[in-house]
């Protein structure tokens, strides 16, 4: 016997407003359940059907998913941090101090972001090693592997550009050392350093440049590559588990 609440929900579902947003109707048949995934902007990157075996933790330890989850968390905390941060030279350090001392839950926000970043780098490396171990780079997955490596680079750059933003001694000298290493490249080294720093010294231009990279360019690239990465995983047959075949080639499950 449907409860009054369920009855009310049913009525809601018959309204025109509802129908204009959620078009598929209740997910009670295979068709509507499929539409629920591939007809959804956010979910259609994921496959409609997955093999049950691939949902086990031991399959890939959810490394890729966790990396993505951490990325989302970093984006959320990052945007919240952006409310309190000025990418200018005396303000940057002061704003970081203000986050520590004045902003409610500022310590939490900053630590989440920083620790999340460290954890994400760790997970991304682990994910890469695991994919390699399981042979997930072999055809037809070789393009996805390249995308993955690009994602690794984006992650590392995000980490490096973000490291400068507190503008403390640690940040300043890390960037000094890093950009000096860049300048050791033959022929183009000094020019590349100039582009990276927006000048010859690690100063306000460098801070602004790194901020834009960290907040706009690299996250956009990350989203782009993540999209392609997921798409390729789906199109190449789903997560990790190879279908088990009989001697005559038919799928077992």
């Amino acid at each position: 016997m449907p409860t009054p609440f369920n009855a009310a929900l049913e009525d809601l579902r018959t309204t025109r407003v509802w129908k204009s947003i959620f078009r598929r109707g209740p997910a009670n048949s295979n068709r509507t359940r499929s539409i629920a995934v591939f007809g959804n902007l956010f979910l259609h990157w994921l496959p409609v059907k997955v093999r049950e075996k691939s949902l086990r933790v031991r399959a890939a330890y959810y490394l890729g998913s966790l990396s993505f989850l951490l990325f989302i968390m970093l984006v959320v905390t990052g945007v919240l941090l952006m409310f309190y941060y000025h990418p200018a030279v005396p303000n940057a350090y002061r704003d970081m101090k203000d986050l520590q001392f004045v902003v409610s839950n500022g310590v939490f926000l900053r630590n989440m972001h920083r620790l999340g970043a460290h954890l994400m780098v760790l997970l991304v490396f682990w994910h890469m090693f695991h994919v390699f171990y399981r042979g997930g780079y072999k055809p037809p997955h070789e393009f996805n592997w390249v995308i993955g490596v690009l994602l690794l680079l984006v992650t590392l750059f995000l980490s490096y550009t973000g490291y400068l933003l507190p503008w403390d001694q640690l940040a300043f000298w890390a960037v000094t050392v890093g950009t000096n290493i860049i300048s050791a490249m033959p022929v183009i080294g000094r020019k590349v350093r100039f582009v990276a720093l927006g000048g010859n010294i690690v100063g306000e231009n460098a801070l602004l440049r790194f901020y834009v990279l960290h907040v706009v360019i690299l996250p956009l690239l990350a989203f782009l590559f993540i999209g392609v990465h997921f798409w390729r995983v789906q199109k190449d047959g789903g997560l990790t588990v190879r279908p088990t075949r009989d001697e005559d080639g038919t799928n077992k499950d």
Binding site: R94, K97, D98, Q100, F101, V102
Partner: peptide, 8 residues
């Protein structure tokens, strides 16, 4: 000056 904790 900017600190709001005693030790800091």
């Amino acid at each position: 000056g900017p600190a709001t904790e005693v030790a800091e």
